[in-house]
Design a protein around this nucleic acid. Structure first.
Lengths: 194, 194
DNA sequence: TTGTTAAATCCTAACCGTTAGGGTTACGGT
DNA sequence: ACCGTAACCCTAACGGTTAGGATTTAACAA
């Protein structure tokens, strides 16, 4: 029942073809040098079809980055019952940062960093992710923190990801920033473990 | 010698007239309902002139918000020689939040919150402010923290501003978040005051 | 004064992302 | 077999933004 139907398959194929074509062209010629009409023509679809699959030109680049959102929230909800929050988040951010500083991803992220529009779009996207994370934190019954505290920690975690990606030593930066986040988080407890 | 010359005066006047006209029209009819060509016509300038003064439509709304940047950095550089960093920043953020949650600013910020484009623009602008603040922190000889720590604290401070503005009780939110920031900051010291 | 330079402004026309309007095809369920 | 509708198409436009190049005018020196 999830994927029965030729219709959904064709739709998914169209979407994928658009995304693949776009990414290829962007990397070949540069993001700014490729127009929406170019992508649509090369993928052999109408411009309106392209925009029925993707909300904007920038969204073509971050095609499957709602997995980012899911991974963060799942790091909170799916952690072992006794595992403390912050280390779980740190582990996930480590993995996310490694994933996007890996070999194959380098050209993609160089392109992103080279385009103000893409940087701006990504930041705004991360903020939405932070809101999701904040909601996941607020929903955890083991965490009696205020909504403000949850939203704050969520943003701090997003900050850690963004800053670590730009740092000279991303791994070390994650650890350094998470020490700060840990301290911030503990400051919201009335000292629970003591 | 700062303001000699009729030329600079006329230029400043043109800029001001554009900004005033834009803000008036935006508040009267709504941001989306007013086009660039409307603003230019009402201000009696060419569209190209408008864009020689403002880089984008959104920039018309945040006309003089580099004072924001200056106030943050000056809170660091101009503080009393013995005043600790975080309380100085908290005081300034308190003032900034109060300023934009004041009576007269309400319609403006309702308009901003109502437009995704303006929200996105503001966030991106605040990130630039965070970079300035990070530079100011890194330049303070009394603060031997790493660049990563400086950039982190800078972003946390911007987060505090953004979150507090949206909170039900902005003043209390500033205090709550700054307790977390203080803890994060202390975590970067090898315990200096003990 | 007068002439020269460069800054500020102007006009027109276009570019590009995005959307509206409205039509065609073909899948899915009855 | 038939209908509803999802996915797709085309054309034309809208709105922010920019290029190209002309025109005015403050600033300043001869």
């Amino acid at each position: 029942m999830p994927t029965t139907g030729r219709r959904e398959r064709k739709k998914a194929a169209t979407r994928q073809k658009i995304a693949d074509t776009a990414l290829r062209l962007f990397l070949e010629r540069g993001y700014d040098a490729v127009g929406i009409r170019d992508v649509a023509a090369e993928a052999d679809v109408a411009v309106t079809t392209l925009f029925s699959h993707f909300a904007s030109k920038e969204a073509l680049v971050f095609e499957q980055d709602d997995t980012f959102e899911q991974r963060l929230t799942q790091a909170v909800t799916d952690r072992a019952p006794d595992e403390p929050l912050i280390p779980a988040l740190r582990r996930e951010v480590h993995a996310l940062v490694r994933h996007c500083t890996a070999e194959g991803s380098a050209p993609l992220y160089r392109m992103i960093d080279g385009s103000p529009a893409l940087r701006e779009y990504e930041e705004s996207m991360r903020l939405r992710h932070a809101e999701s994370l904040a909601a996941a934190l607020a929903a955890d019954p083991g965490l009696p923190q205020s909504t403000t505290a949850c939203r704050t920690i969520a943003r701090f975690v997003i900050d850690a990801y963004a800053l670590a990606r730009e740092a000279a030593d991303p791994d070390a930066a994650v650890d350094e920033i998470f020490q700060m986040i840990e301290a911030a988080w503990e400051a919201t407890h009335p000292a629970q473990g003591a």
